[in-house]
């Protein structure tokens, strides 16, 4: 297995998501360590990116711990957030910024 992109942080070897160390634009190629992938939308600092393909119903692992569950199939390199995962406890309340084009700033 090769090294993953230095712009991404892998907090725990068990994780299926990376954390973005910098902002990354949509279309940016990245190396997951298990193969190349492409970022699907503009990624803000410290947002999550799928390390590999994640199936609906699969737990999202960060810090080596489950932080929720995928609600859709997520491709490697794609943004993992409220649009494709949810809490196993209480729903997440969020606001869409109507002044911005995309959900990620």
């Amino acid at each position: 297995m090769s090294q993953h992109d230095p712009r991404l942080i892998l907090l725990d070897p068990r994780d299926n998501v990376f954390v973005a160390r910098t902002r990354l634009p949509a279309g940016e190629p990245i190396e997951t360590g298990m193969g190349p992938a492409v970022i699907d939308r503009d990624i803000a600092l410290a947002h999550k990116i799928a390390r590999r393909a994640i199936a609906p119903g699969e737990k999202i692992l960060k810090y080596g711990a489950p932080i929720g569950v995928a609600t859709k199939a997520i491709a490697a390199g794609h943004h993992v957030h409220v649009q494709n995962m949810k809490s196993d406890y209480t729903p997440t309340y969020h606001l869409e910024d109507e002044r911005k084009a995309g959900a990620a700033e």
Binding site: V19, A20, A44, L45, A46, H47, K48, I60, K62, Y63, A65, P66, I67, G68, V80, H81, V82, M85, K86, S87, D88, Y89, T90, P91, T92, Y93, H94, L95, D97, E105
Partner: peptide, 24 residues
């Protein structure tokens, strides 16, 4: 209450769930 200890800005900042905020 129907809400977690989770504000809208947490999500904008990349946190997706209360569990994720908790781990941090």
């Amino acid at each position: 209450l129907g809400y977690g200890s989770f504000a809208a800005g947490n999500a904008e900042g990349g946190l997706s769930t209360i569990e994720e905020k908790s781990m941090g």
